[in-house]
Write a protein that binds this DNA or RNA. Structure first.
Lengths: 233, 233
DNA sequence: AAATTTGTATGTTTTTTAACATAAAATTAA
DNA sequence: TTAATTTTATGTTAAAAAACATACAAATTT
């Protein structure tokens, strides 16, 4: 899609957008001063340590949010899809980014000024409450992840990642192929394991007929068994 | 301290309280309908799965927030001190609790009605913004914890826990003894390791003269070395 | 098309951590 | 007080996961 074809107003009104409760005046204020950018696969959108100066709205594509640990290993904290907002936590906490955002495929992002967002929150209470709901549900998600990533074994962790990807991106038309293509390394960085272990465990799952793998396409062939592996940990 | 001696209004006005920006009218509304309860050490304040119906304010004592994982092992997600608020995440996300709260020592808690909190947020924008700041800084904390707990080795994780306890509860008058007493099991559950490993690693740190241990009292004797262990992971 | 780089697959070894076992010390209850 | 239970300490073994090594396939660059 070409940048010139993007109609941001349409995205603000979308049913999944947190902006859809804004008044027309508020939406227009946002739209008056927005920036559209496009990113190629693997482009860095923002980086750990940078100061946020706008709120980003993912119009098209997929973006991973990751944080590097001691050994330089990355942990993917979040996977986003249109029309999620990105990078608002650091902005709202008045902190530099503690994570980086990288495009997983060609991506279009609409940026609104930081100050305008803050004014919106300040003037529109329903919007503030939507942000509160967003943050508190994300915090719950993050807390659950702490326990899953630290306590489950490799098989359980990878199974959880596959089910998570299904919930986030859904299936293709065949109703069983994950609607996202990731490298084995990304799968590993989602699941807190080495790339080798992601590759090996993926092969094992395929041998056990839980999934089938063709390149980066993953089909879930035995959903119940996958859930069992996830539940057992 | 006796429950009858508690003056809740004093706590609402305290400089650490998120309630201190409220108007007198708002504070009085809160105070009109509050419940004080006291808990003994190890008492359960709320439990995973329960429905939150009030926001809890820790007036006195210390409380751990923990979540059980697959094998029944607990991960301590948060350590609280006066006058932190407790259990607000689930309440704000309109979800059941995903974690439990347990008193670490004799504790006094003041509960305000859920609905009143929601009305406050709805009517007082500055208060909503304070909640947003609280949630977003907690989310950052949680995300950092994901990476630390999954990527650091045992020594680094325990060092981080000790430094975290120092930051949260500070030192006693001697300027080196942690102002909190925890069982080895709690230290383990903070650091994502077995109790055996917490005991062993604590002994090693003591042998290396990084800390000194007397029962449950921990003294930091070599702060720089402890930070180095923490940084190395 | 050939060459180079990157990603995937799989076997082997080493490290880390958990599990298990036992005993002593410290609390708590009878 | 004694007895029982819980907590701490430490040694040993077993399991899980990382690290390493190598080969092959796929994608990219030249």
């Amino acid at each position: 899609m070409n940048l010139n074809d993007i109609n941001c107003s349409e995205y603000l009104n979308s049913s999944n957008s947190i902006f859809n409760i804004l008044s027309n005046t508020e939406k227009n204020t946002l739209l008056k001063n927005h920036t559209l950018s496009s990113y190629k696969k693997n482009d860095v959108i923002f980086k750990e340590g940078e100061i946020p100066n706008s709120i980003l709205c993912l119009i098209e594509g997929k973006v991973k949010i990751l944080k590097k640990g001691v050994g330089g290993r990355s942990q993917i904290l979040k996977m986003t899809k249109p029309i999620d907002i990105i990078g608002y936590r650091a902005l709202l906490a008045d902190e530099p980014y503690i994570s980086s955002a990288i495009a997983l495929e060609d991506t279009i992002i609409c940026a609104f000024d930081k100050q305008e967002l803050k004014e919106l929150i300040h003037n529109n209470n329903d919007f503030a409450i939507k942000i509160i709901q967003l943050l508190s549900s994300e915090l719950g998600f993050s807390n659950k992840k702490i326990v899953a990533l630290t306590q489950k074994h490799i098989r359980g962790r990878l199974a959880e990642t596959i089910l998570f990807l299904k919930n986030t991106y859904g299936f293709e038309e065949d109703n069983c192929t994950l609607n996202i293509c990731l490298s084995r390394e990304d799968l590993a960085n989602l699941s807190n394991m080495t790339t080798s272990n992601a590759i090996r465990t993926l092969s094992t799952f395929a041998n056990e007929a839980v999934i089938s793998v063709k390149g980066r396409k993953i089909k879930i062939t035995d959903f119940k068994k996958l859930q069992k592996i996830n539940d057992l940990g």
